[in-house]
Design a protein around this nucleic acid. Structure first.
Lengths: 231, 231
DNA sequence: AATTTGGTTATCCAATTGAATAGCAGGGAG
DNA sequence: CTCCCTGCTATTCAATTGGATAACCAAATT
């Protein structure tokens, strides 16, 4: 367990807003949050100990109580951070507005796959929590997952209505797409041991996004990608 | 926590092989294993306590040490059980041998989706363990996951060589297919809160299998399933 | 009937954990 | 310069945990 912070931090001001103490406080809070993300992702809520998280951040474990009240509060703050970042990083580029729905969806898939590769903690934390049943899950579903889901549903319904997508059950669509995008990066360890492949490689990430698009969103490209039989 | 076993068990013999003690022993072992599956699936390795598992099974927690040496041994025995059951229940029916590779694959998907719905603990336990990195994961990969995976790879390669499937990376294929089949059932709690849907329903299960086949394995059926645009 | 065996329970132990409380030290207001 | 506020640390506490040991007792063996 390496400590991520030296005893004294960096007390040099960089001339920004706020006084030194509030700034330091915010920094410490952010540091703890970052470490909490890693530890929660790797060990799940029960498996993660506030002491490990604090040790990882190089602070006294009492501080977590001060900043986040209790372990539950820390988890919720971490999840809040995750979804805020997701929303920021998943914003569609303005030029997407001109594209047809199916093309918009392909662009969305590319962004989402790259997000999953960049931040595997997100899926790791949420999946571990969704496997169990808890107040935390209900909180996260109500606050973040369900609203995001509504958007995916709208996207899907539009594709179906435009006649470019088969009318499968919405929940099947949702779980097939998101799982296909997340799983490889969420299970990077497993993949390392099976294929000896490092998921961090950009090649692997982009190829995965294109594979999903080929299989699920582009049956023209798909037919072309199929090798002609020898006959 | 309900106890699954009364104090005295059922001491009546049913005239089978083996003496009473060995039979009882096997029964107790199986009972503990069953409870371990549930608890490991719900809470992960770290979150599950041997005392809870023992309490669930209605036995003293010392017994787990006797039957499985330690917590690790219990987990491994549980996983061994899971994969043995998987192999039994996933055996292809003899008539499949006559089918073309693509049709065999569709049949395999139907069997796998139903398996995932019937035994969601399997994916729950393995995914939680694959998210972390541990000796247990390496053990499971070497012993079960990788061999099973080789088979899926062969299946995939044959489809590609027959010219009925696009030549995407093998690992992408693997994670897209398995994740698409598992995730909805693995995350049944989440789905319950998002869609209010009970995953146990046969309708939902079969429809999900067909959705996967439509999207991923049957672009002819897929085109037919797409509503024609109004134009 | 007496003795041994082995599945099971009761109990203990050290380590870890989440939480609570008291105290410290240095920045900031006066 | 002085004092207070607050971000942070040190320490304590009760509960839980995995594991170890010894006692128990009914089935099996003789």
């Amino acid at each position: 367990m390496t400590t991520a912070r030296s005893k004294s931090g960096n007390p040099k001001r960089d001339g920004k807003v706020g006084n030194l103490r509030t700034e330091q406080k915010a920094q410490t809070r952010a540091l703890i949050l970052q470490c909490a993300l890693e530890v929660f992702a790797e060990r799940g809520f029960d498996g993660a100990s506030v002491r490990d998280i604090a040790g990882f951040a190089g602070v006294n474990h009492g501080l977590i109580r001060y900043h986040f009240a209790d372990k539950d509060g820390l988890w919720k703050a971490a999840v809040e951070f995750l979804f805020n970042r997701l929303h920021e990083e998943m914003a569609a580029p303005p030029e997407d507005a001109k594209l047809a729905p199916l093309e918009q969806t392909k662009s969305w898939i590319r962004r989402y796959v790259r997000y999953c590769a960049r931040h595997p903690e997100h899926a790791r934390i949420m999946v571990q929590e969704s496997i169990r049943d808890s107040d935390r899950l209900r909180w996260a579903v109500k606050r973040f997952i369900k609203p995001d889901n509504e958007e995916t549903r709208r996207r899907f319904r539009r594709l179906v209505e435009e006649g470019v997508y088969p009318d499968i059950p919405e929940h099947s669509f949702n779980y097939i797409i998101t799982a296909a995008a997340q799983s490889m990066f969420m299970l990077a360890n497993e993949m390392k041991y099976i294929y000896g492949l490092d998921v961090a490689s950009d090649d692997v990430v982009d190829a995965h996004a294109e594979a999903i698009i080929t299989l699920l969103f582009d049956h023209r490209a798909r037919r072309a990608a199929v090798r002609r039989p020898k006959s």
